[in-house]
Structure formats: structure tokens, C-alpha cells
Write a protein that binds this DNA or RNA. Structure first.
Lengths: 214, 214
DNA sequence: AAGTGGTCTAGACCACAAA
DNA sequence: TTGTGGTCTAGACCACTTG
């Protein structure tokens, strides 16, 4: 971190660090492995360990459930379900859920904080994998929170973009049509199967924060 | 991950797992520690280890340098510097760089991919900490890449929002005024000192991807 | 061929918080 | 008070890759 060793510099092998710091190899290995995970060191067998060339910033992004997010700000969360449809998946549904056939639950809802629009949620749930979702009252517990608590997942992928609010979206979020919005799409898997796909639309001034501490 | 153990369930203590899996305590500890880092397990001294309640998604966000990002897409990167000012920091500068006095370098540039506008960059560099930046030709190597390669940093904080392009921004990015844009602000620190503050403005359809693999 | 990192073992001492 | 996790040691075997 001090910059004394340039990127590409070979750091001493583990046995030398053992001697230098008077500790065991396991301890050295743990330390260097931690730096490797952070992307600060590249390790190559036989060749040695090298100061990595930092070509990017890596940051941990925490995306809490909307209900949690609202409550953290000390406000009261509520959700109004605008649309709830149980149907055989159409081609769009099947694409988003990476499924070939079967029923899906389509939800559209508006999250509010102390009654003020906070985020618009459009969600698809794969009822083949989560049949229990068909019987849940999502006004009591938001879909995201229910799924987090009841359906184990192994993999999630996020896509963050900026879009202009359509007239309908703007009306729900209390914005002008065309106002910039932050869109967070998330696909959630369990092993190979897609559990749910959600798109959250926030007013554009909503900030996502990510932090890297080296 | 299978959901057999509900959140809150106490998992067997390390010595039992040693017996169950016929391995040493160090190995058990490594495995459980890795799960803890991923947020799947909560450990409490004396009390034990528990299945964590997954209340949020954590994802690793990789934000490459713009030049790297463009080249990864197989396109040619170029940057045009629109403005370059070396000045005594004004109140805005001092706020963004958390400094009390001293010279700053203010840059504004447009990144292009194969000549097409890609992102607009507005940057402040703290010349007290990075005096060498004053003499660099940033058209040859973009500011972000030069800083990454030459100035060690310890901490970075990101803020992601959606904003509407001003007339000037839209002109540079070849968009309509008011078009939604993705704004990524990054403050970069070395220990207590702020090295640089940058704001990158991308056309709204530019996607940031983040992935969590459990 | 040799030295590197990858990984595991068996044992140990400690701080600490909960019972 | 006790059992838990936190952490370290000294030693070992192995696969691999590269000089």
C-alpha cells in the first residue's frame, strides 16, 4: 500500500517471510492469501507472488431488501401490490427465468416510506421452484423479504442502469415523466435454476453506495 | 444453502465438525470462516456459530478504469481533455478533497470508444499529495489509469445515482438534453488524505454488473 | 530438477461471553 | 466456570510450473 513495491515486483517467498516476521508458514500463507483475495497480490506456483497491477476498483456493494432499507432510515415501510398474476410463463417470462415451461407469479408493487413513494418493484417468481409463493399475502411481508427468509439461493447477479421514467412509472413514483431513475435488476439462482427476477426502479437521486477498504 | 438449517440454527461446534469430517480444527475453522466472510454464518464467541439471517444481498462490484473497460470490449480507447486547470482549491474543491488549503488539478475529459462518446469524466486531483500529476499528459494515458498505476490508495468510496444530462453534458455524450445518465462518483483516499475525486457520467443504458456467488 | 505455493495435521494457548 | 471461537506453531506431503 505504501507503493514501495511497484506492480509486478516479486515479493519474498513464504519461507523468507517466515524468517523475517518470525512466524509460521501457515500465518504467512493466510496473510498473503488474504491480500490475493483482495486483488493486491498475484500468486503463481513455482514463479512466486507478485504485486498486482491494480487495473480496477473492486467494491463491496450491499443491496438490502427494500423494506430493510426503508426501516434503516427510520421510516415506516409499506407496499401496495398493483398487480398480481399467476400464469403459464410466456416467452418473456421464460427468458427472464431461464425456464422452458411452467407457472410463474408476476408481481408489480410500489414500496413506500412513511407513505411516500420509494421504489417500484416488478417481479417474476418461478412457481415451479417456489410453489409456496402462490399463497403468500405480500402486503404483510414484501416479496423480497419473504423470499430471502424462505428460499435459499446460491447465486445472484445484478445489473444497474439509468432509465427515464415512463408516464405510468412516473405516476407511481411521484415524478415527472422522463425523470431519470436508477434501475436495479437482480436475477437469483439456486444452483442451475432461476428462482426470481426483480427490477427495482428508484428515483434517480437515490444513491447506491459501495466501499472498498484496502 | 440447501435450506435444511433455518436461519438462527446453531451449527455444530468446531470440535464436532472435526470428528464428523475427520479433519483438523484448522481446516474446519478455515471453512466456517470463509462462510462467515460471505455472510452465511454468524459466529459468536462462547455462544457458537449460527446460520445467518440473509437480510441483504452483497455483491462484488468491479469498476474497471474507463480505458480498461473500453479495451475489454475490443474497442479503441481515446480521451479528449476538455478542460485542465491548476488552481488554488476553492471551497467546492476543498470539500470534495477534504483539504484545508493547497493546489488542485481540475480535469474534464470525454472518453471515446472507437471515436464514439463513452463517458464524461470530471476529476479533481489533490496536488498536495500527488504533485507529479501536474506534469502528466493525460491524453496519452487517462487520468484514472495513471493514478491507479502511480499512486497507492487505501480506501475508495463510490456513489451511484441516476441523473438527467444537462445540455452541455448531452452534447459531449451525443445524447438529448435530459437523457438519463448513470453517475458514478468515487472518492479515493490514502489513509486520511483524499487523493482524487472523480465523477463519471455514462449514457443511461450503460450497465454496471455485480455478482454474488454463494 | 528444484523451488514455489496449496493444503492439511495435531497440538497449543488465549480471551471472552454466556450459562 | 466452562466451552467457544481466534489464532498461532512446527512439520509435512503434494502438484505444479517454470527457469
Amino acid at each position: 500500500m505504501a507503493g514501495v513495491w511497484e506492480p509486478g515486483h516479486r515479493i519474498p517467498p513464504e519461507h523468507e517471510l517466515m524468517a523475517e516476521y518470525a512466524c509460521s508458514r501457515m500465518t504467512v500463507n493466510k496473510a498473503i492469501s488474504a491480500l490475493t483475495e483482495r486483488g493486491l497480490i498475484d500468486r503463481r506456483k513455482r514463479a512466486g507472488s507478485f504485486v498486482a497491477a491494480p487495473t480496477m476498483h473492486r467494491a463491496m456493494l450491499e443491496i438490502p431488501d427494500v423494506a430493510v432499507e426503508v426501516e434503516r432510515r427510520g421510516r415506516r415501510h409499506s407496499i401496495e401490490i398493483l398487480e398480481r398474476t399467476e400464469r403459464e410463463g410466456d416467452s418473456d417470462d421464460r427468458r427472464l427465468l431461464a425456464m422452458t415451461a411452467g407457472p410463474v407469479l408476476a408481481l408489480r408493487g410500489i414500496h413506500r416510506a412513511d407513505g411516500t413513494p420509494f421504489a417500484l418493484e416488478e417481479r417474476l417468481i418461478n412457481l415451479v421452484i417456489v410453489p409456496a409463493a402462490a399463497d403468500i399475502d405480500f402486503t404483510r411481508e414484501s416479496p423480497g423479504r419473504w423470499l430471502l427468509g424462505h428460499v435459499p439461493w446460491t447465486d445472484a447477479q445484478h445489473r444497474i442502469t439509468a432509465t427515464a421514467a415512463t408516464a405510468a412509472q412516473a405516476a407511481h413514483l411521484d415524478l415527472h415523466p422522463g425523470a431519470p431513475c436508477l434501475s436495479i435488476e437482480r436475477a437469483t439462482w439456486r444452483t442451475q435454476e432461476r428462482i426470481t427476477h426483480v427490477r427495482l426502479l428508484y428515483p434517480g437521486d437515490h444513491a447506491l453506495s459501495a466501499r472498498f477498504i484496502a
